[in-house]
């Protein structure tokens, strides 16, 4: 990828968005037949599936928790999801993302209702354009609700960052690569509690506060789309 001369021109970003604008977002719940719960998310050029299996019996048994279910997350990228073919199977990056995804989702789940069991969340990125972990978390939250797992709330996630001294919402690949800062955030919208926070780059204290505000506003919008996706799945017409 070549570095564009400027990432922001006249207050517009490469894809025409304003700094505080989200990419087009589409969420569908219940898209896979075999999974207990599933969701499909398109965020700009990102295309992500999430599937939930469980609560189900935990193997190996020594990983069981006597008083609660265990949440397992696996984030994975299809070999064709990026410019260069990605070798199949987990690497260090995807293993770290799996871990922070699990920790982003855990706080909303009533895991204590299912002792000794496991809830598996599988995230598959089919097409990537920066922000795949946030898209994956948004999909996983909807898939967990679709599976009927009791939750205190959904979890909504978006990345914010700094591009040419402008704080921007929901970075695309060019902005992620050539911008100054990338900060993926996940929140429990109802409580305004942060469950995922990673950052690399540079922020002053003021910029950090500004970016966080922007992330909260972005998540509010995502939250609404997530809730709609769940309600739509059951808004089926009666037959006859």
């Amino acid at each position: 990828m070549e570095k564009p001369e400027k990432l922001i021109v006249d207050g517009r970003r490469l894809d025409g968005r304003a700094p505080d604008e989200l990419r087009p977002l589409k969420i569908k719940a219940g898209v896979l037949e075999r999974a207990d719960g599933s969701a499909y998310v398109e965020l700009g050029n990102n295309k992500v599936f999430a599937a939930v299996y469980g609560p189900r019996e935990m193997h190996p048994r020594h990983d069981q928790q006597p008083d609660a279910a265990v949440l397992r997350c696996r984030y994975s990228m299809a070999p064709f999801s990026v410019e260069d073919r990605k070798k199949p199977g987990p690497d260090r990056r995807s293993m770290e993302i799996s871990k922070v995804t699990k920790e982003a989702l855990e706080p909303v789940l009533f895991l204590e209702l299912y002792p000794r069991s496991v809830i598996d969340v599988f995230i598959e990125v089919l097409q990537a354009d920066a922000g795949t972990r946030t898209a994956g978390i948004n999909a996983a939250a909807v898939a967990l609700a679709d599976a009927g797992v009791p939750m205190r709330d959904l979890v909504s996630s978006v990345a914010v960052g700094k591009v040419e001294d402008t704080i921007v919402l929901d970075l695309i690949k060019e902005e992620d690569q050539f911008g100054t800062t990338d900060m993926p955030v996940a929140i429990i919208p109802r409580k305004k509690a942060i469950t995922l926070l990673q950052m690399d780059g540079h922020f002053t204290k003021e910029e950090f506060k500004q970016a966080l505000d922007l992330a909260f506003r972005g998540c509010e919008k995502i939250y609404e789309v997530q809730r709609q996706a769940l309600k739509e799945k059951y808004a089926i017409k009666e037959s006859g």
Binding site: L32, R34, A35, S38, F49, A50, A51, Y53, R56, R74, S76, A78, P88, D120, F122, E124
Partner: peptide
């Protein structure tokens, strides 16, 4: 071919 754990229990 990847038999993704997403696809089947």
């Amino acid at each position: 071919a990847e038999l993704l754990p997403l696809a089947s229990p």
